[in-house]
């Protein structure tokens, strides 16, 4: 599987994504600068975490208008898989490739810690190495991660099985939802099943030496499907 990682001014998880992709696939991903208008031929495009363009106006809003994201949209329309992590998820909602929006956390704080997620779909391009209903631990690091969509949109995306990850309830019965996301949504897939966005950082949980490996299987799923 050949991957490209998009690098925006302000991206800060691009190299984490690249290290994990290389560790899992054995192939170094192409790093593509935000001003580039064309992408190399790849099977997967990763929009990494960070603060593209300083999060000015709204998180992901500027990046959604950048030349490289126009190219990403064209590749996505051809069926190339796209994974947006954290700021990448915000960019995907700002472009309209995924429904809804990511807003300021309900508690107003930047939250950087491990969270537990429930795998809602283990039959996607991105998650086939997981088990349906499995509980996994993956870190989050964001201030604008509160997922919002209106009731009608939420009913539609739930009905079409687009929710892939949800924040899992705490062991003591608390909601476990760290940021106020509607219906505990942590990760979504589009209708085609080729575009996914999630707030948690699987690339930061892909090496046992760094505190967890529950995110690694997301990249293994992609390798399995896209090879």
């Amino acid at each position: 599987m050949k991957a490209a990682v998009i690098v925006f001014p302000g991206s800060n998880c691009d190299r984490d994504a690249a290290v994990t992709l290389e560790a899992v696939t054995g192939v170094k991903p192409a790093m593509v600068w935000h001003g580039d208008e064309a992408l190399p031929k790849v099977d997967l495009i990763v929009l990494p975490g960070g603060f593209s363009y300083g999060d000015y106006l709204r998180s992901g809003a500027m990046a959604a208008q950048s030349p490289v994201v126009r190219a990403v949209k064209a590749e996505a329309a051809r069926g190339v898989a796209v994974l947006g992590i954290c700021n990448g998820f915000q960019i995907l909602t700002e472009t309209g490739l995924l429904p809804g929006a990511l807003m300021r956390n309900s508690g107003l704080n930047f939250i950087c810690r491990n969270v537990d997620l429930t795998v809602e779909r283990a039959d996607t391009t991105f998650t086939n190495a997981y088990t349906q209903g499995e509980r996994v631990t993956i870190p989050i690091a964001h201030k604008d991660g509160s997922y919002f969509a209106d009731d009608e949109t939420l009913d539609r995306i739930e009905g079409e099985g687009q929710v892939v990850f949800r924040y899992a309830p705490d062991a003591d019965g608390g909601s476990g939802n760290p940021n106020g996301s509607r219906r505990d949504i942590a990760g979504l897939i589009d209708r085609s099943g080729r575009i996914m966005g999630l707030m948690p950082h699987p690339e930061r949980a892909a090496d046992a030496a760094l505190g967890g490996i529950d995110g690694r299987r997301l990249f293994e799923s992609l390798t399995r499907t896209l090879n």
């Binding site: 106006l57 709204r58 809003a61 208008q65 909602t93 700002e94 429904p99 809804g100 929006a101 807003m103 919002f148 969509a149």
Partner: peptide
């Protein structure tokens, strides 16, 4: 419509 406001929210 294109940039300054996000019509979703």
């Amino acid at each position: 419509r294109q940039l300054l406001a996000n019509p979703v929210i």
